[in-house]
Design a protein around this nucleic acid. Structure first.
Lengths: 221, 221
DNA sequence: ATGTGTTTGTATCAATTGTTACAAAGACCG
DNA sequence: CGGTCTTTGTAACAATTGATACAAACACAT
């Protein structure tokens, strides 16, 4: 367990012995989850630091109409929902679902703040982490609010490229991408077809080839 | 200045003499701004704790197409952008504009973190503050992404009511509301007209009367 | 090889919202 | 009070996206 925690950016620069002290007996719990288990439900209390030790969880924002947006995917050794644990309205703003069999470490927020007070590096790292999450949320607002489907796709493809490669192999189904973009699956498919017709990309199921890189970059702005 | 700071929720429970120590000479700057001055530009470095001592500023998210969303309005004694100061990509995610002649207190983030380390109550309050801001941002995502214009208006009216009052006097022009909702002004006007035709509200310029409260509450969900 | 479930592709129609334009009403200032 | 600027109201048309449906292609298990 400690080796995984040491890989978490929050604990960078902290020695193994200091981490071991922070996580001495009684300071944490570990829970196991099966695929599709709900790890935390939107609206429920959110009062622990939660670190994925193994597996992968997905944060989903679900509307009562059934519409779903995938906000993030978190795997080991990363934490999720850490930005919310000290909020006055202290509840999960998302539903967190295990995508695979997972193991999660829970530290009560009262205990964690003692850790922060004791360890200056940990405090600095935690503040960096939650500031990064706030930045992430504003980027998400920008993406979900200002973007057409076409520019979402362009942005996604440019980010998914490896180096200067013009071929992008998708890991996700169209439905999964649509959930990430907050759009309807047929709309996503239609827009990709349009981009193909316009000569921006070619598309063979999960293999996307970027044809007009300059235009794609303009679209992604 | 210190009396104002003491009214900021971050400094709740901290004595005047402790606050005075925190803000001893050399630990801060105060700057003055005129109406419409840009206090912080989207993309610029964001590395100070910033507290409004006097006046009012507005956080705007501006797209290169010109579309603008008002993210927040901040008046004394509150802080703005505090959730972002420790981010790795350490820049303003919004443009902050003075709405009135304003006075702002700046504390370098390196100095502020020393304050946090020294004072447990301040640390607790700051974590609460930035967790609250993260919650606010997820609420904003929810509002901007999942909501029709009609439900945005319904939500707004219910929140703007004072007690059980069914009459809401607007402080804002339609354009200002449209900017807050991230919608076009004529669309906002059209939707309000529809709500009037449907018997949900009556509307005489800045005076809105709620007619069907139950239905409005359903719409706001 | 076959059957089943999933994914992709596509079409049609509907819904919501944006854009542009202009007139009427209202607010404000000299 | 009159003139000017701002705000509101509204209309027409356009754009984007969603919803629904169905067939073809593909992946996987037996």
């Amino acid at each position: 367990m400690l080796e995984i925690i040491l890989r978490n950016p929050m604990f960078r620069g902290i020695s193994l012995s200091d981490v071991a002290t922070l996580f001495e007996n009684g300071h944490y719990q570990i829970k196991h989850y099966q695929t599709n288990d709900v790890v935390g439900m939107q609206g429920e209390p959110c009062n622990h630091l939660m670190i994925v030790l193994k597996g992968e969880v997905q944060a989903q924002m679900i509307e009562h109409t059934g519409k779903l947006i995938v906000m993030a995917e978190i795997s080991a050794p990363h934490a999720y929902a850490a930005a919310f644990i000290y909020a006055e309205q202290n509840e999960f703003p998302v539903t967190v679902v295990a995508q695979k069999e997972s193991e999660i470490l829970f530290v009560r927020k009262e205990i964690f703040i003692e850790m922060l007070q004791k360890n200056r590096v940990l405090l600095q790292n935690f503040l960096t982490f939650i500031s990064n999450r706030s930045k992430f949320l504003t980027d998400k607002i920008h993406f979900l609010t200002f973007r057409t489907i076409k520019s979402k796709i362009a942005d996604f493809l440019l980010k998914r490229r490896i180096g200067d490669n013009l071929v992008v192999m998708l890991d996700e189904t169209q439905q999964e991408l649509a959930d990430m973009f907050g759009v309807a699956r047929p709309s996503l498919a239609r827009t990709m077809k349009e981009m193909e017709v316009e000569g921006l990309i070619t598309s063979e199921r999960k293999k996307i080839t970027i044809v007009n890189l300059a235009q794609l970059k303009r679209l992604a702005m």
